[in-house]
Design a protein around this nucleic acid. Structure first.
Lengths: 336, 336
DNA sequence: CTGAAAGCGCTTACAG
DNA sequence: CTGAAAGCGCTTACAG
């Protein structure tokens, strides 16, 4: 493997100083056009490009933004990530992405590495384990030296600029949607009861059901997807119980399972049962039936997160801003 | 924002030299236990961690691997990426990921940035535009100084270590599967005719059909997904034409659309039509019906790519190795 | 217009 | 066992 050529070697070949080469490469007005051309031509010939690590160290700035994501396989997070990248690039920043697999340990490592001079600031969706353990110190340590923006998952101890989705409103809007259509027996299904976001979604559902006396709410929560499917199918085909008129899926998996269970048992959508849930937007459009869903606007989440971080870079933040993205119910084939 | 503390400042506080602090932090045997403790305690107190950029510059090694991916929304690529990260981490490397959005320009930029000292080597899935333009020079330039491993998409001008999937065999295996089940009229559907991988899949399908006189092959290719669906539905419901007995989907989108079209028109899977295609494995398991699919083993692709790169780091490569991952047909609900 | 010098934050061969 | 010095590849204030 050839070594990359450096400014020093170019200087030697051209018999000029290192400073002259550096200035010429950076188009400094101090340097004559003639010298600039000479330097640039040789640089091109040898395929010289400045060493980024050296430039970063010297300038004490990297134009990198760190992004920490629990799981790329999650379509919502993948779409947020994509938009973080697009927005960052527009503003002249690159992103360096780490994945935590929902683990606290990996999150801590990622934060450490990124904050050691690799990036100007960090956008992070905290891992599930972080919430389970209620362990937030590592964020605060890092935040003293590196600006942090969190997204999607919030907690009162996470006192940073953050962007999240109006989760309560999403669930309430779905329930209200069912109510408007006069649906009385509503089943809440979830495979993420253990996840904090799963807990709040269930809590919101239940509290709605308590205030609405005319409507009955039931819940099925099960982490094992096969069992979840078995339980859902058992419930929707049990004629000895009140008929389920609507299902609310708390996550992509449970929504898919509910949709499949209904289809498999030849139950008719809308006529017999309605369904609203969370979906992979790209795929949902292609499926039959297309499930009515809660749109969380991942584009907006990503864009806003970058905005908050970059503003934060310029002026030290005083008070944490919390941006909340409004969601909407998108009606497709599984509900009126 | 507080500045991060440096070795120099710790040295000053402790009234020892910078070298002593550095050696103590790195547990050098040259340093007494007493001094080590003193240094480490203070380092901990001030939250000192070594500046990665400086260490990289000094050591001329970063323990970073660059990864360049056309699109994270592609479930296959996302899964490969995940496994690249897992494998790299196991071997003590971090990954820095860039996305090209299938654009040549972005690919070129990503390669430039990564090769300027940021990483030890680069794993890349070349963008579609790169193939369309037949423009591979940028790879060769970079490859002189930075080891490159390509994956998933190959081309004879891309003379690097690479891992790819046995695409021809996949299509042939699916065709053979249909043949074994005595299916005569086979429809190949694709939304990626413009993509090189789409072209080879079609070509392979067609050549199989030519050799098998007893079987009829038809193809529908259409980039616009709504139109693709319209065309597929028109064909499978047209009774004036020979009945389609099996469908082969050339990509995730066309496979989903074919499955949905069949369901929407109440055509029975297996009895009336069989379907094999490419799927998002995680979601496919939850859907009804679960589509029979071609498993490309993204785990293996990711792991192998990292292996090849890391071996390449150690000994300069002489001749490019091409690893081919064998695929398999996984039978689910849409075929025998 | 060009160059010598200092320095970004580290590591390490060498001297003591 | 500790420290002074050189250097990784750059940039830039300063001198000439």
């Amino acid at each position: 493997m050839k070594k990359k050529i450096t400014i020093k070697e170019i200087a030697k070949i051209l018999m000029v100083s290192v400073s002259t080469v550096s200035k010429a490469m950076n188009d400094s007005p101090e340097i004559s056009e003639k010298t600039k051309k000479k330097v640039k031509d040789l640089a091109k010939f040898y395929g010289y490009t400045p060493n980024h690590i050296a430039v970063s160290l010297k300038n004490q700035s990297t134009f990198n933004i760190g992004v920490i994501i629990p799981d790329i396989q999650n379509p919502f997070l993948a779409e947020v990530l994509k938009n973080i990248e697009i927005t960052a690039k527009k503003k002249g920043y690159r992103i360096i992405t780490f994945f935590t697999d929902e683990k606290l340990k990996e999150e801590r490592e990622s934060l450490n590495i990124l904050s050691n001079g690799m990036v100007e600031g960090i956008i992070v969706c905290p891992s599930e384990e972080t919430f389970v353990e209620r362990e937030f110190k590592h964020f605060n340590n890092i935040a003293e030296t590196t600006p942090i923006v969190t997204f999607d998952r919030i907690h009162k101890e996470l006192d940073f600029n953050s962007v999240s989705v109006d989760d309560d409103q999403s669930i309430l809007k779905a329930c209200a949607h069912f109510k408007e259509n006069n649906l009385k027996n509503i089943l809440f299904v979830s495979s993420i009861g253990w996840l904090s976001v799963g807990k709040t979604r269930r809590r919101t559902f239940k509290s709605y059901m308590e205030t609405e006396k005319a409507i009955e709410g039931e819940t099925i929560e099960e982490h094992n997807l096969d069992e979840l499917r078995a339980k859902i199918e058992a419930r929707i085909t049990d004629n000895s119980l009140p008929k389920i008129e609507a299902i609310l899926g708390a996550d992509i998996e449970s929504t898919l399972i509910a949709s499949a269970s209904i289809s498999r048992n030849k139950i008719k959508f809308i006529d017999e049962v309605s369904l609203i849930g969370y979906v992979n937007k790209n795929h949902n459009e292609l499926q039959y039936p297309r499930v009515s869903y809660i749109n969380q606007f991942p584009e907006k989440v990503g864009e806003k997160a970058v905005d908050l971080l970059i503003n934060n870079l310029k002026e030290d933040h005083k008070k944490a801003t919390l941006e909340i993205i409004k969601t909407e119910i998108v009606t497709k084939d599984t509900s009126k």
